[in-house]
Design a protein around this nucleic acid. Structure first.
Lengths: 339, 339
DNA sequence: TTGAAAGCGCTAACAC
DNA sequence: GTGTTAGCGCTTTCAA
């Protein structure tokens, strides 16, 4: 910058003014400065400026997700990036892989880089430690899961309602023995989806068979194994509600292996790529990742713009996408037990 | 930092030493400083330090990809992040959506944030403008596509060889009329895959029917339409080689719509999620995104570590994953034309 | 309309 | 072992 000033024959502050588009520079001077800057390939150092700048904004957002390679997280990321760009922001993303320590490390790494705001998918049991950053003026928005130990803006999927929709849909097709396959219990959304499943069955006065509820499934292999076991029970379920997309894939594989894919109904929570191409096509409760990301980013910028209203808890509805597998009807009920 | 120094009753430089783990601090002093830092929740400002630090490293990498939501790019991103973390680095990612102007904007945005290295999927016709950054000491590694106008490290998939493998596989199953469905011509990898297709046919002395080659497909809808048209030709192809995963999905849909999925062979370039669940399962030429990302990141760090050897051009081989659709045999050849 | 001086939070160089 | 001084590249303040 000093070099640019020298070459343009002006003071360093004038260069600063031109670079930042500040007023009170004669067009002629401005032009000379621009020429000089271009010829020296000058790129202002954003971080150096921040040191002294009034707003002290790094124009960078920090994003913590399960994994940038996870399709849902990646879509949320893209949506956040879109909003960020509009505001002249860049996004620093970190993958946590559900590791509580990684959450801490990532927050520290991003804090040292002085991100202006955090969008976090909580992993730890307690996010109270993040209060510090919020108090220091770095807004925090939690996505996908609710944080613990801190009151802050959140944007989550309507997990309970979505699960209820799925189960209601299966009930409407005559099913009474509906299995639930869920992710690890410590993952909040898994618990909520199970809750929706239980709520809807309760609301319909259906007795729950605990044998049909399995949690702790985190990949498709274990889901396949469990689904096979349930489907070969003496009194098997006539429908399956799977609570996560890898689990859905596992369930499909089990159904295919047993040749039951056209006989046992299936509704999966969260989309399965190319679910359109399968036979039958898979009915899913799909999440609006794009909207979640967009809302989260908008919340961050609202806070950066000085919004001090109470924390907002946004719930993004799911959509039941009817494609075929969920509309398989239950076989005629066996005669009621008469003892 | 001054506050920490005051609270610990030491000089500011001692705090710096403790924070950075430099030697020549007595254990007792160090402990007092640590206490003070913790009680004030001190987080050093990485960027402020960089201003004066000898290596001037922001410990941040810039990544430019088609889209962070694209599964291939997202996997590359994750692999880069893994290597980055090991080196204490964070990753700033930007989505270009194949927009040449976005490439320029993203490079500028990252340069102003003083990233230490770039990993770029080139979009523009010319990357000569990046020489500046390289000369100023910011290494550049191009992934997935070769850059133009600059000699730098590259990590790409063996597109030509992978395509040849696919076509050879189809030839081995008796096919002679093999269609090629490719992405937009301006996308380098699309051209390379077509080249591999042509090469392999030429090597086998097969005449190419230009009617069976269609480029310019960028989504599954257009691919479906084109595949339908080809398959309903008077003399239709007996096999399809699709050059991109959305195109593969389109081709599958067309085959399903026409009820031909068990009669016409299909090999797709790049993986299709859940291709395992389809009937028939889809044979693909799969790219090793993880390896590409890892190698690219390792190249950046090698350069940062002072490697000044000539640019390396790494080619990551593909793998033909045999699953069923590519092994459908050609129907018995029609009698040769005898005029 | 312009520029000089001070200072942002930190590290380098050197003195003690 | 420890502290002092200068200065990184920029913006602020304020004087001209």
């Amino acid at each position: 910058m000093r070099d640019v000033a020298q070459l343009a024959g002006v003071g360093i502050k004038t260069v600063s003014r031109v670079v930042n588009g500040e007023p009170n520079v004669s067009p002629a001077t401005a032009e000379r400065v621009r020429q000089a800057a271009a010829s020296l390939h000058f790129e202002p150092d954003l971080h150096a400026g921040n040191l002294r700048r009034a707003d002290r904004r790094s124009r960078t957002l920090g994003l913590l997700v399960s994994s940038v390679a996870n399709p849902f997280a990646a879509q949320v990321h893209r949506a956040i990036e879109r909003v960020a760009i509009e505001h002249g922001y860049a996004v620093l993303a970190a993958s946590l892989e559900d590791d509580p320590d990684a959450e801490l490390r990532a927050v520290t790494a991003l804090a040292r880089r002085r991100v202006d705001g955090f969008v976090v998918t909580p992993v730890r049991d307690d996010q109270a430690y993040l209060r510090l950053h919020v108090e220091r003026g770095t807004p925090l928005v939690c996505v996908d899961r609710e944080p613990h130990g801190i009151e802050t803006d959140t944007v989550v999927t309507s997990n309970v309602e979505g699960a209820r929709d799925a189960v209601r849909h299966l009930l409407a097709h005559g099913h009474r023995r509906i299995a639930f396959l869920g992710d690890l219990e410590r993952i909040q959304t898994a618990g909520q989806r199970r809750q929706g499943y239980l709520d809807e069955l309760a609301a319909s006065g259906i007795d729950v068979d605990p044998a049909l509820i399995v949690l702790g499934l985190h990949d498709d292999a274990s889901a396949t194994a469990v689904a096979r076991r349930l489907l070969t029970l003496p009194d098997p379920p006539t429908a399956i509600f799977s609570g996560q997309n890898l689990v859905t894939i596992g369930a499909i594989r089990a159904l295919q292996q047993l040749g039951l894919e056209h006989d046992v109904a299936l509704v999966g929570f969260d989309d399965v790529e190319t679910s359109d191409l399968l036979k039958p096509r898979v009915t899913t409760v799909s999440q609006d990742a794009d909207r979640i990301g967009r809302l989260a980013a908008e919340r961050v910028f609202a806070r950066l713009d000085g919004d001090t209203s109470p924390p907002r808890h946004l719930v993004v509805p799911t959509r039941l996408v009817v494609r075929g597998s969920g509309e398989i009807r239950a076989p005629l009920a066996a005669p009621a037990d008469v003892g």
